[in-house]
Design a protein around this nucleic acid. Structure first.
Length: 401
RNA sequence: GCGAUUGUGGUGUAAUGGCAACACGGGAGACUGUGGAUCUCCAGUCCCGGGUUCAAUUCCCGGCAUUCGCC
């Protein structure tokens, strides 16, 4: 299923080919997130033109609406959304966090990403998810009705959705979770991993196990070791990635070597990460695939990717199109970009569309950011093949340790 | 010319004898297995002069300006 084609000599970076019933995926790869069977603001044709090779959809959201039975009757996700390339589905485990603790405490999966002091531990909203030993009880954010997901139910939904690669049902813990809770959740997630495997019915769907353990070394190592000992087709690193990017890097440095000992030949996904710097840092530490809403979300919020200006030591890869200085700027977003947006439109025009909240803005901006990240991933793959990964990283991230 | 009317950030509006609020607009920031095209922060104001009062953006008088009506 997965073949490693090149190993970087100086790091754990590698290239590979992941085979699925809907074609092969060259890794390392960035997977755009299509939660509701669409990348917001784009359609499948757009994604094809951008050269996206795989998408990730969501079990919880599609279960609520339109329901997996409908999707199944429409030819599964591939037929429904007219996308003939590979699809991942997330298991719904993340929503236990994002709609539960995360919502209640107003926090994301890396604590320091919310530097505004009052946003951490702030009121937040009433949580819509409660974790039990059997699974997660949700209060539907759409209708308020009670929705229960268990490993078995998640596997059944993902089977009906018909993705090529599905994920085990897990509990994503919070950066605010203490050791005792994280450990308790880990035991539960490990049991759910076995239940997910047991509930598997379609051998054509690859099933990835999820490594948890928060920011605690012994839990991460234990989890990597345990999950790697089970007959999963691949692995995903999930859950809280600590309180800073440094923590995230450390976590990968604990986990990946364990996988290398046990299962070098299986792909490793990093859930929910995908900043420009993250791609370099995490590929270097042995990650094969990423999914992340950030490029699409920040595009909708006015942040558009640009190559770092030559000579700068700042790791800043975006401009804010809303800024007054772009009011009459005739340049494209990024002069090194060949995306459909940059080929035709100026910063001034995009700024106008953004400020006027024109719908076309969302598509043009999303096209650009995804194009940017997908091309960057392509460059990264080429650099691993050419043994120039370290050099490429240096041109992008100059002051990282 | 006479009568009435109204003067509050850039704009449109509130409230108030002591701290002037809201929206839009302006400036900036955040967002990482997408509930929320969202959230956060910053700047900026009482037409002018006099009077009453401990205290006036507020009450009184005058000026200037607005708008409406009449000649």
């Amino acid at each position: 299923m997965f073949t490693i084609t090149h190993n970087d000599k100086k790091s754990l970076a590698r290239t590979g080919i992941l085979k699925t019933p809907h074609g092969s995926i060259e890794t390392p790869v960035f997977i755009p997130v299509a939660t509701q069977a669409t990348v917001k603001a784009l359609d499948s044709k757009d994604l094809e033109l951008l050269g996206a090779s795989v998408l990730l959809a969501n079990t919880y959201h599609l279960h609520l609406r339109p329901g997996e039975k409908l999707v199944k009757s429409m030819g599964g996700l591939h037929g429904f959304m007219h996308w003939n390339k590979p699809i991942f589905t997330d298991s719904g485990g993340f929503q236990a966090f994002s709609l539960g603790y995360g919502m209640e405490h107003n926090i994301g999966k890396i604590a320091s990403m919310f530097p505004v002091p009052h946003s951490i531990g702030m009121p937040g909203r009433k949580k819509l998810a409660v974790v039990t030993e059997q699974g997660v009880e949700f209060k539907s954010h759409l209708t308020g009705e009670k929705i229960v997901l268990t490993p078995k139910i998640s596997m059944q939904i993902q089977r009906d959705l018909g993705a090529d690669i599905i994920l085990a049902f897990d509990e994503c813990t919070s950066p605010l979770s203490d050791y005792a809770y994280t450990k308790k959740a880990l035991v539960r997630t490990h049991r759910w991993a076995k239940e997910s495997l047991a509930a598997r019915r379609n051998a054509k769907q690859q099933l990835f196990g999820i490594i948890q353990g928060g920011e605690y070394k012994d839990l991460r190592v234990k989890s990597a070791s345990f999950i790697a000992s089970l007959p999963f087709d691949g692995f995903a690193v999930g859950g809280s990635l600590g309180k800073s990017k440094k923590d995230m890097h450390k976590i990968l440095e604990w986990v990946i070597p364990v996988l290398n000992q046990k299962n070098t030949e299986k792909p490793r996904h990093l859930l929910g990460i995908g900043g420009v710097d993250d791609l370099f840092e995490c590929v270097e530490r042995g990650i094969d695939s990423f999914d992340c809403v950030a490029p699409a979300r920040i595009a909708r919020r006015g942040n558009l990717y640009v190559h770092p200006p030559a000579g700068t030591m700042k790791n800043k890869f975006v401009i804010n199109i809303e800024n007054a200085k772009y009011k009459a700027d005739k340049n494209p977003i990024d002069d090194q970009c060949a995306c459909p947006t940059c080929r035709s439109y100026s910063r001034a025009y995009l700024r106008h569309l953004y400020i006027a909240q024109e719908l076309s803005y969302y598509r043009l901006a999303t096209l650009h950011n995804l194009h940017f990240i997908l091309r960057l991933m392509e460059e990264i793959r080429a650099s691993i093949r050419n043994s120039t990964f370290a050099r490429l990283k240096k041109t992008w991230i100059s002051n990282h340790t």
